[in-house]
Simulated assay, not measured.
Amino acid sequence: MLWNIAFRTLFHDRGKLMAGLVGVIFSVVLVNVQGGLFFGLIRKASLLVDQGNADIWVGHRGMHNVDFPHDIPERWIHRIRSIDGVAEAQPMRIGFSEISLPDGGHEGTMIIGLKPATELGRAYDIFQGPEDALEHVDGVIVDACDDDKLLSPAIGSIREIGGSRAVISGKCYGILSFLVTPYVFTTYDRSVEFSGGDPSMSSYFLVRVEPGVDAHAVCAEINKRLDDVSALTADEFANMSINYWLTRTGLGLSFGAATALGLLVGLVMVAQTLYAMVLDRISEFATLKAIGSTESEILLLLGAQSSLVAVVGIAIGIVLSWSIQFLFSTPRAEIMFSQGLYAGSAAIVFVICLAASGLPYLRVRKVDPHSILQG
């Protein structure tokens, strides 16, 4: 009977019910979209590592972010190749330069130098151009999503990078830097021409271990043999790169503040709706108390109303969030959802809705059941 009263009371004023649903839907959508944008953005901080096909990254002892390396002597790689369990080790260079534009301007770029005969460090898949684009004479690979910055270079077009001739031999898609500078992939040797620097130095050594070998044990051996480097598994280095940007910028705080504001707005709207419903039917609650309903039963009734609003609003909000991702997510502004994000947003909003039912409950507690009998 109590559940029937809860639902009938809730659906009696559909205008107020819709207001409550809008609050829940708004909160769910905002939490998911804000969270999805955050994960999509911060993923770029470790994109080279996540898709670099390496089990271990070896860099300078003070390394903290994949985009800002410190040089290490290339000759050290031979000590790594001699370690038991290492299947392959290749050097990688990362440097900054500028690419010329057809209008006479220049655009800052990040040069990624890779050995052409390996998959280590190859974070891209060819989107336009031949599969062996990296091996073409003076060839470089840029990302199609950076066309607006590079003024839409065609395959085969000639540019200058660091004063040296470069041919756009291929394009990838969706490999974007956390910084505003586009990635430019080229061969390991050619990268020195584009970005300058000492040709005897590398930025990282990328290591692939043999099947069944513990990558952490290989890292420990590398750190033992080479005092001036740090060897980390790909997951550890990816997390380090992400944490660098989270702790050095206000990124997490800004996204968190906006999400908290959305939750607060949703809480206020739901609480206000439930409170208005109670005020409109305060005599009905007094009647329930007069005929013997306990405080716990009244609280259960309000909780049932909040739960129904929460469940319906969460379901609609998740569908809308998915629709927004499908329609608006791009590599430049990627919205990344996960089951954990969906579940977390649903749980948070549901708890908030239950908490919101406490406000009208405080009003009902003050109702004197004798007032309805005297009337």
Rank of each mutant, 00 (worst) to 15 (best):
G95C: 05
Q128G: 07
I242R: 01
A347L: 15
F285M: 08
Y124V: 07
S195T: 00
L246M: 11
T186K: 05
E119T: 09
E88Y: 13
L2E: 06
I318Q: 14
V142K: 13
L21G: 08
E107W: 04
S164L: 04
L134T: 03
F68P: 11
D13K: 14
L179N: 11
D214F: 04
V351A: 14
G317I: 10
R208W: 15
R8K: 08
G252V: 05
R93E: 03
L261F: 15
E119P: 09
L299W: 13
V31Q: 09
M269H: 09
L300Y: 12
T287Y: 06
R281C: 02
V29K: 06
E193W: 09
P69K: 02
L308F: 13
L150T: 10
Q272H: 14
R43T: 08
D189E: 14
T233V: 11
G196Q: 05
V309R: 08
A347F: 12
K44L: 02
L30C: 13
R93M: 03
L274N: 01
A347K: 07
S82Y: 05
D84F: 10
L21V: 09
L327M: 15
L41C: 02
V167L: 13
A144H: 14
R81I: 07
C353R: 07
R332H: 01
D368G: 10
I372V: 15
S283E: 13
V218I: 13
A304Y: 06
I126K: 06
E98P: 00
E284W: 04
P199F: 09
H106T: 09
A217S: 14
I158T: 15
C353F: 13
V312G: 05
D103C: 09
L37M: 13
A154Y: 08
D71N: 15
S97L: 03
E160F: 11
I314G: 05
D189V: 14
V31S: 15
T249F: 07
A54I: 01
I242N: 04
S306H: 07
D13P: 11
G105Y: 03
M63T: 02
S100N: 03
C145I: 11
N53E: 04
R165N: 10
N239L: 12
R61T: 11
G129K: 14
P116Q: 12
I158Y: 09
L101Q: 00
A89G: 07
D147W: 10
F255S: 11
D146C: 00
V268R: 07
